[in-house]
């Protein structure tokens, strides 16, 4: 391949109706249409999905790993925010 690589895209797949799209990986493609086709070929070969999103990786704004403590530690001592005090009926699969 030449030095000019295709841009990177992040791939999100909805595994079935009612669930959210989940990040499954990334791939290279020349444009969004090609990224969708590649995503279909690479990530849904075994009936993993019913819908695909692709987003150019450059469009993702990510949190800085060094901010981890500032952003996330304060949630640890607030257990009442976790819904662990409820009994979840068996029929509810995707809470």
């Amino acid at each position: 391949m030449s030095g000019k690589d295709w841009p990177l895209f992040e791939v999100f797949v909805r595994s079935r109706a009612g669930l959210s799209h989940k990040h499954v990986g990334s791939l290279h493609a020349a444009d969004p249409a090609m990224a969708l086709e590649h995503a279909r070929d690479i990530y849904t070969r075994r009936s993993e999905g019913v819908s695909i999103w692709v987003v150019e990786s450059g469009a993702v704004t990510a949190s800085d790993p060094s901010d981890k403590e500032m952003l996330f530690d304060r949630a640890q001592d607030k257990t009442y925010r976790h819904p662990t005090f409820y009994n979840v009926p068996d029929e509810v699969e995707n809470l």
């Binding site: 791939l27 290279h28 086709e37 070969r45």
Partner: peptide
């Protein structure tokens, strides 16, 4: 294939 992704597409 000319790229990994395209290799897979053709194999499919």
């Amino acid at each position: 294939g000319p790229a990994l992704e395209e290799d897979l597409a053709l194999a499919n």
